[in-house]
Design a protein around this nucleic acid. Sequence first.
DNA 1: ATAATTGTTGACTAAAAGGTCCAGTTAATC
DNA 2: GATTAACTGGACCTTTTAGTCAACAATTAT
Lengths: 202, 202
Amino acid sequence: MGRVSDAKERLMRSLTELIWTGSYGSTTIDQICERAGVKKGSFYYFFDSKAALAEEAMRTGWEDYRVNFDRVFSPALPPLDRIHRYCEFEYEEQAKIKREHGHVLGCPLCTLGSEISTLETNLRKMVDEIMDQCRRYFETAIRDAHAAKLIVAPDAVCKSKLVYAYVEGLLTQARIRDDLELLKDMERGILDILGANVPVAA
Amino acid sequence: MGRVSDAKERLMRSLTELIWTGSYGSTTIDQICERAGVKKGSFYYFFDSKAALAEEAMRTGWEDYRVNFDRVFSPALPPLDRIHRYCEFEYEEQAKIKREHGHVLGCPLCTLGSEISTLETNLRKMVDEIMDQCRRYFETAIRDAHAAKLIVAPDAVCKSKLVYAYVEGLLTQARIRDDLELLKDMERGILDILGANVPVAA
DNA sequence: ATAATTGTTGACTAAAAGGTCCAGTTAATC
DNA sequence: GATTAACTGGACCTTTTAGTCAACAATTAT
């Protein structure tokens, strides 16, 4: 009952883009509204604050985006292939972003999380949880790879933290340096960490 | 000639602290001035903008801080000891910060760089250069370790990028999750990446 | 001393930002 | 087709922020 609207979704997408291409702190509510084509009255109808919007935007953004992870990290694939496909996928995503925005943008979660970590407790927790879900994709792949005797990694949780810290670090560096090339080493890097002697074909 | 003042230095320290404990975007010029005990008129006497202050603050901040790196990564030490000392040093630094501020703060360069990467070109370049200087400490240690046959790493530049991405990633995760424990794995992680079979004593 | 230079102060402006309010509009339901 | 709930528009207010300025204070060289 009552009229329907996708203004909420537009606001969420708007903030996500603005955070990614700029930063959380530098985006104003007016900007978010303008890009979404929504008036401030409507903004405050849907959300209490920028932080509240960001929280919901990150949550639903991840819910949508995770299908990509499910596909790439499909348990149907040999575990090291999943890693390979993830690296390929990430490179393509960042390359597309670079073409569209003229800048490598890295991981929006990590950028946001690092920025608001000490300022927005709820948002920090949300980012924290999502990142842990991301990490688990690596954990499973590593555990399977160990089981298949492709690598030696009895502690998959620990190794996945290692790999995930590396991946996020590399994406952050790529953003800071605006250098896509850095990401070409991602697979080799991960395999180095995992001690997999699989040479990446040139 | 004329009067002397350390207001410039106080402003630089003030901004650095505010960026670290909060974020670049969330700190205002008024805040910077208040914490430094400097009036806005004086701020604009010394600097054109927040970005200009940040640039100089990062540069001189690093010039002061690098003595720690020189000590920890002294070429007089066996190369893997340098790594060990760095990890110890970093942990202690972050632990001190956590005690003082109630929150793990990670690497201020990385936090700032990731935040302003698409917004402040000059600042981005400055951060980029400083980070590369940091990376070189690892590069030298890795090259020496290879020469001493402690590890197999013919391409020290490449390996150092790997290690440095991991280190920055780990520091960023520690900030986002506000978790000091993550840093306890730093040495083990680096040694894993380097393929050094040196077990870390428990 | 005094002139020149360097730094300080606080009051000021204008713009931007966050946030409120409520009358009005649209669409589903009865 | 009236009622009701969901949403919109935009005027309005307040606070915060960046940035300016001219008069003043302290130091040093002459």
